[in-house]
Measured scan of single mutants.
Amino acid sequence: MKVIFLKDVKGKGKKGEIKNVADGYANNFLFKQGLAIEATPANLKALE
């Protein structure tokens, strides 16, 4: 799953980066902790 990092995550990505991560990692950790959002077309456009 492609995500946009909202904060730096050690060993995974930095704020503003768009990366592929495992679905479970994104859903169970990144999204719940507010560290990333899904890289949907709307979210990508808002990032610009």
Rank of each mutant, 00 (worst) to 15 (best):
M1N: 03
K2G: 06
K2R: 13
V3A: 02
I4R: 02
I4W: 00
I4N: 03
F5P: 00
F5L: 07
F5W: 01
F5S: 00
L6F: 03
L6K: 01
L6E: 01
L6M: 08
K7D: 07
K7H: 11
D8L: 02
D8H: 07
D8M: 01
V9G: 01
K10M: 13
G11Y: 07
G11T: 05
G11D: 08
G11C: 10
K12T: 13
K12Y: 15
K12Q: 15
G13R: 00
G13A: 12
K14V: 09
K15A: 13
K15I: 09
K15P: 05
G16E: 02
E17G: 01
E17P: 00
E17R: 02
E17Q: 11
I18W: 02
I18T: 06
I18P: 01
I18N: 00
K19G: 08
N20W: 15
N20S: 12
N20C: 15
V21G: 00
V21N: 01
V21M: 09
V21K: 00
D23G: 12
D23V: 15
G24Y: 14
G24I: 12
Y25Q: 04
Y25F: 12
Y25R: 05
A26Q: 05
N27L: 15
N27D: 10
N28Q: 10
N28C: 12
F29S: 06
F29Y: 13
F29K: 07
L30Q: 01
F31R: 03
F31S: 05
F31W: 03
K32E: 13
Q33S: 09
Q33Y: 15
G34M: 09
G34W: 05
G34N: 08
G34I: 02
L35T: 03
L35N: 02
L35P: 00
A36C: 04
A36W: 02
A36D: 01
I37S: 03
I37E: 04
I37T: 05
A39E: 02
T40E: 03
P41R: 08
P41G: 07
P41E: 14
A42W: 03
N43T: 07
N43A: 11
N43Y: 06
N43C: 07
N43D: 05
N43H: 07
L44A: 07
L44F: 04
K45F: 08
K45S: 11
K45N: 11
K45A: 13
A46F: 13
A46P: 05
A46G: 11
A46T: 10
A46H: 11
L47S: 07
E48P: 08
E48S: 11
